[in-house]
Deep mutational scan, measured.
Amino acid sequence: SKGEELFTGVVPILVELDGDVNGHKFSVSGEGEGDATYGKLTLKFICTTGKLPVPWPTLVTTLSYGVQCFSRYPDHMKQHDFFKSAMPEGYVQERTIFFKDDGNYKTRAEVKFEGDTLVNRIELKGIDFKEDGNILGHKLEYNYNSHNVYIMADKQKNGIKVNFKIRHNIEDGSVQLADHYQQNTPIGDGPVLLPDNHYLSTQSALSKDPNEKRDHMVLLEFVTAAGITHGMDELYK
């Protein structure tokens, strides 16, 4: 796709999030870079409003799984890469995230190029959380598991539907599940690639910047598309 050509090198990323969870309002600002050749993201996020009212790991899918245009699609799968094909005009990404036995996040993001920078601007609203639950009670460990993110075409809306389940580790050794339902639709009216069913395999590492006084998260992530085999004719070339 034409959009794919915008991702040949390292691309700067800007992320802006405004959130409200159970009436606790907050903002997060992030910057870093993405390299789609390797499916690599390096980002640093800062809570610009003081202390973040929710655990950082609960925002990873909104912040970095928010820029799935940096996923590495192998050559034989490039015609299934909706995310890059929607660029530079970008796409709207909407999600509902259900935390098992707790509340939910609803998010709406616009992901697009502004100049040479890929920008992810998000509004997040969280409701029905227990004040002493795993999320508002800050009981999650500061780490992140690997996940597969399942993608299918949504021809009606000229976009994709995505769903997956995140496993958050809790300090007591148990797990907090979070079910994600995602819809992506193009902002522009140019042609986009509608994929066959496949998935993104994601690995994320969270860390801290020892010199950063503000509440923050440093993230390194690798994302690769998989799940579609080479056609038989490919094998015999």
Rank of each mutant, 00 (worst) to 15 (best):
K2R: 13
K2T: 07
E5R: 15
E5G: 14
T8I: 10
V10K: 04
I13F: 02
L14Q: 14
V15D: 00
E16K: 13
E16V: 12
D18N: 14
V21G: 00
V21E: 00
V21A: 02
N22H: 04
K25E: 04
K25M: 08
K25T: 06
F26S: 01
S29A: 13
S29F: 10
A36P: 10
L41R: 03
T42N: 09
T42S: 15
L43M: 15
F45Y: 13
K51E: 11
K51M: 07
L52P: 02
V54G: 00
V54M: 06
T61I: 00
T62S: 15
T62P: 03
T62I: 02
L63P: 00
L63V: 09
C69Y: 03
F70L: 05
R72S: 12
M77V: 05
K78N: 04
K78Q: 12
Q79P: 06
H80L: 14
D81N: 04
F82S: 01
S85F: 07
S85A: 11
A86G: 03
A86S: 10
A86V: 09
M87V: 03
P88H: 09
E89G: 11
E89K: 04
Y91F: 04
V92A: 07
E94A: 07
R95H: 00
F99C: 01
K100N: 08
K100M: 06
K100E: 10
D101V: 01
D102E: 13
G103A: 03
N104I: 15
K106T: 08
K106Q: 13
T107I: 03
R108S: 04
F113L: 09
E123K: 13
E123V: 13
K125N: 15
I127N: 14
I127T: 14
K130T: 07
E131G: 05
D132G: 10
N134S: 09
L136R: 09
L136P: 01
K139M: 12
N143D: 11
N143I: 13
Y144F: 12
Y144L: 15
N145T: 14
N145D: 11
N145Y: 10
N148H: 10
V149A: 07
V149I: 14
D154E: 06
K157M: 12
K157G: 15
N158H: 04
N158V: 03
G159D: 11
K161N: 13
N163S: 08
N163H: 09
N163T: 15
N163I: 09
K165T: 11
I166N: 04
R167C: 13
R167H: 15
R167G: 15
H168L: 08
H168R: 01
N169S: 09
N169K: 11
I170F: 05
D172N: 11
S174C: 13
S174T: 15
S174G: 14
L177I: 15
L177F: 10
A178S: 06
A178P: 01
D179E: 13
H180P: 01
H180R: 00
Q183R: 14
Q183L: 11
D196Y: 05
D196E: 10
N197S: 14
N197Y: 04
H198L: 02
H198Y: 04
Y199D: 02
S204T: 14
A205S: 07
S207C: 14
K208S: 09
R214C: 06
D215N: 03
M217K: 01
L220Q: 13
V223E: 01
A225D: 02
A226P: 13
I228F: 07
T229S: 13
G231C: 13
G231A: 15
M232R: 15
Y236H: 12
